[in-house]
Computed example of a mutant assay.
Amino acid sequence: MSVTAIPFAVLRFNYRIARFPLQLIEDQVVAKWDAEAPARLFYERSLGALDATVGGVLGDATLAKRGAALTERSEALAKAAELDAQAAAKREAADAELKAKREKAVAEQKEAREAKEQEVADARQTAEQRKQEAEKTAAERTAAAKKQADEVAAQRKKSVDAAKRDEQAKIRAAEHQATAAAAAKKKDAAAKRDDAAATRAQADRVEKLADAEKEKRQAERADKA
Rank of each mutant, 00 (worst) to 15 (best):
Q155S: 10
K104L: 14
D60A: 05
R40V: 02
Q23A: 13
A61N: 13
A210E: 01
A212W: 00
Q28N: 12
A61Q: 09
E151I: 07
A138T: 12
T53A: 15
A105Y: 06
Q118V: 02
S46D: 09
R19A: 15
A183K: 14
G55Y: 01
A222M: 07
K158Y: 06
K186G: 15
A89W: 08
A173Q: 07
A149Y: 06
E175L: 11
R200C: 05
E119K: 14
A190Y: 02
A225D: 04
T71M: 06
A49E: 14
K164R: 11
R217A: 02
A81I: 02
A201W: 00
E207W: 04
A210Y: 01
A173C: 00
A37M: 07
Q218C: 00
G67L: 04
A178T: 07
L70Y: 07
K104I: 05
A163W: 14
D223C: 11
I17D: 00
D27L: 11
A87F: 15
Q177F: 14
T179L: 14
D34H: 04
L50K: 06
K187P: 01
L11G: 00
K110D: 10
N14Q: 14
T71D: 03
A31V: 11
A198P: 00
D60P: 05
A112W: 08
A138V: 09
A162E: 08
A61W: 05
G59A: 09
K146C: 04
V3G: 08
L22V: 15
Q218P: 06
Y15I: 13
R124L: 11
A94Q: 13
G55T: 09
T199H: 08
A39R: 12
K164T: 14
L24C: 05
A94E: 15
A174C: 02
A153T: 07
K214V: 00
K185V: 04
